[in-house]
Design a protein around this nucleic acid. Sequence first.
DNA 1: CAGTGGTCTAGACCACGTA
DNA 2: ACGTGGTCTAGACCACTGC
Lengths: 237, 237
Amino acid sequence: MQQMFNTPLYLQIREQIFDALRSGRWATNDPLPSETKLASEFDVSQGTIRKAIDDLVAQNILYRHQGRGTFIRRHDEQQSLFRFFNLARADGTKPVPESMNLHCKTRKGLKHECAALQRPTGERLIEILRLRRLDGQPVILETILVSQQLFPDLNKRDLPNTLYELYGDEYNVYITRAEEQIKSILPDATMQHHLEIGKTTPLIEIQRIAYDLHNQPVEIRISQCVTGDFVYACSLN
Amino acid sequence: MQQMFNTPLYLQIREQIFDALRSGRWATNDPLPSETKLASEFDVSQGTIRKAIDDLVAQNILYRHQGRGTFIRRHDEQQSLFRFFNLARADGTKPVPESMNLHCKTRKGLKHECAALQRPTGERLIEILRLRRLDGQPVILETILVSQQLFPDLNKRDLPNTLYELYGDEYNVYITRAEEQIKSILPDATMQHHLEIGKTTPLIEIQRIAYDLHNQPVEIRISQCVTGDFVYACSLN
DNA sequence: CAGTGGTCTAGACCACGTA
DNA sequence: ACGTGGTCTAGACCACTGC
């Protein structure tokens, strides 16, 4: 096959592989077909397949393991606990977060919430409130909002510490990236109570929107965090 | 040339190119020698040079421009204003920051400051205090600390809005990455005065350590920011 | 041992920028 | 028209994994 149209071949292949991934064509735990097999299937050279996969690896959608194969990146317990978790001790090490669910209910979504999730206005959302402890201290109060349509019966399940793993395993929704916005706030009565702080202890509030493979917003997560022993850590390049 | 020893050729080449960059072998504004020239110089194929440069581009040390050549990434006015600037409006757009210098002096570094900069304890540091305005409002109070040894007479200069450009142009110190830690604080009297806020307005405090090409810490920067109309924005992958 | 990804080559042609 | 980076190929060999 030759490069036709104006978009490079490897980008076309990348999109085709990406579509195949989303359609569930390959089992989540098995390796993808080898580069040479994909090359003959798509009728391009192995180097072109390689470049396409390079991109998907860079996007953290696939990963390679020499000698074993190429695999779909999953949110499993270990990574999921840390990959999207930016709170660290002052020395840069990361604590293991525990979580306790405070409530889980359904309610009508507010206008701006539905808009952020790109769902019809007024759709029912599932709201989860939980408290997270780091090194035993209550540090984070977290409100999670998802569409009930996309996650039927999520509210009737046992909710694990790592929700993104559950989203993937049970609902075929794979979180690949997220955007966070941080501001500073003072605690209301609920926060004071659960986080065991006074009304003059300032908090950071992190608003996250998490996106799936299709780049669709899937979850809103608002975390109020006490930043005494812990800080929000971020790298710039 | 063949792959010898156990490290891949392209990594060896990458390090050699990197060394050449640091030694100032190529002018900062001219393109590097073309891939084919580098290939014959290092006696490897063009594809291997390409892979080496790919890495340096991914690290944001070089950039390519098709048809023109490969260049050293500089902190120039435009990018520098935004590249390491994570405050955004709630809708995600970025304001143009202005800055006003409040003072610039030298003083003996505290123990933890010298340690963070990997300089001898008690060395003299240059301290710059400035106020930044976004959309006309005073939003950020910023304290900058660098070694006087590394930046002689910096305190006697006119300080531009984009310091990293000055570091590169005048001191051959190129900032390539930074680490930030964020926590929430209440303002002291100085902050209240300059940021025009009351004592109950919570702020976020960003502590940044910026690193140069050698991966040496070069600058400490502590910013206190009002997060009313602006938020700290960050992407997770 | 066979099969996977990882490296490396040599050479072709394309797309862009400059003069 | 020419030189640059960008894409693509076909084929070689290496390094790791699992049987």
